[in-house]
C-alpha cells in the first residue's frame, strides 16, 4: 500500500479519488507528520488546524530521531474526505514538514495510547477495581490503603472502556498521552 503514501508535493494516488468526493460523511483519520525538530514547528501544525477550522481529537509529539533532529507528530482528526485531503495537503506545505502519512488509508496500523487512572475506594469497590484492572492487563503503579494508580496501554477504545468501568468505582483523575501509531508490516 505504499502507493497511498502522500509524499510532500503530491496530491496523487490518494484513496479519495476512488470515493464520492461530495459525501458529507465525517471520518476519523490518524496522521503521522514528520517535522524538523525546530522552534515553532508544533505551533505551525497546531496553528494550521485552528486557523483553518480543522478538528484535533488527539495529538502526541516527541523527537524520534535525535541525530536527524526530526519529530513525529501523531494527530487524530475528523472531517469529510475532502477536508482530510485538504488537511494533508496543507500540512505538506509547511516548510519544516518532511512527510505526511495517513495511517488510516495506508493500510492496517497499530495504534496505542497510554493512560494513568487514579481510583479511590475501599471495601468491595477496591477489590472490584483491582479485578477489572487485571482483566484489562492494567498495571498498578502506585497504591495506598484507599487508592490505586493504574497504567493501561491500548487503543483509545480500550482506554475509554476501562475509564467507563472505573468511574463508578471511584475514578478521580485520568491522564492520557494521546495516540501513537505505526503502520503494520515491514515498510
Amino acid at each position: 500500500m505504499s502507493a497511498l503514501n502522500i509524499k510532500k508535493g503530491s496530491t496523487k494516488k490518494s484513496a479519495y479519488e476512488l470515493r464520492d468526493p461530495n459525501a458529507e460523511v465525517f471520518e476519523t483519520h490518524t496522521l503521522a507528520v514528520i517535522v524538523d525538530n525546530e522552534a515553532g514547528a508544533l505551533a505551525r501544525v497546531i496553528g494550521l488546524f485552528s486557523g483553518r477550522g480543522y478538528n484535533i481529537d488527539s495529538l502526541t509529539v516527541a523527537e524520534v530521531d535525535h541525530l536527524g533532529h526530526t519529530s513525529r507528530i501523531t494527530i487524530v482528526t475528523r472531517g469529510t474526505p475532502a477536508i482530510i485531503e485538504q488537511i494533508k495537503a496543507q500540512l505538506g506545505r509547511i516548510v519544516p514538514v518532511h512527510d505526511v502519512h495517513d495511517l488510516t488509508v495506508e493500510g492496517p496500523s497499530v495504534e496505542r495510547e497510554l493512560a494513568l487512572f487514579k481510583v479511590r475506594g475501599t471495601g468491595n469497590d477496591r477489590v472490584e477495581a483491582l479485578r477489572l484492572a487485571d482483566i484489562f492487563r492494567a498495571n498498578v503503579m502506585d497504591s495506598t490503603l484507599e487508592s490505586f494508580i493504574f497504567e493501561l496501554t491500548g487503543t483509545p477504545d480500550k482506554v475509554d472502556a476501562f475509564a467507563e468501568l472505573m468511574r463508578p468505582l471511584g475514578l478521580v483523575e485520568l491522564a492520557r498521552t494521546g495516540v501513537a501509531a505505526l503502520s503494520r508490516g515491514s515498510e
Binding site: 496530491t11 468526493p21 461530495n22 485531503e85 485538504q86 495537503a89 505538506g92 506545505r93
Partner: peptide, 10 residues
C-alpha cells in the same frame, strides 16, 4: 501548490 487542488472545486 498541492493544497490548491481540490480545495474549492473538484
Amino acid at each position: 501548490d498541492p493544497s490548491s487542488i481540490n480545495k474549492v472545486v473538484r
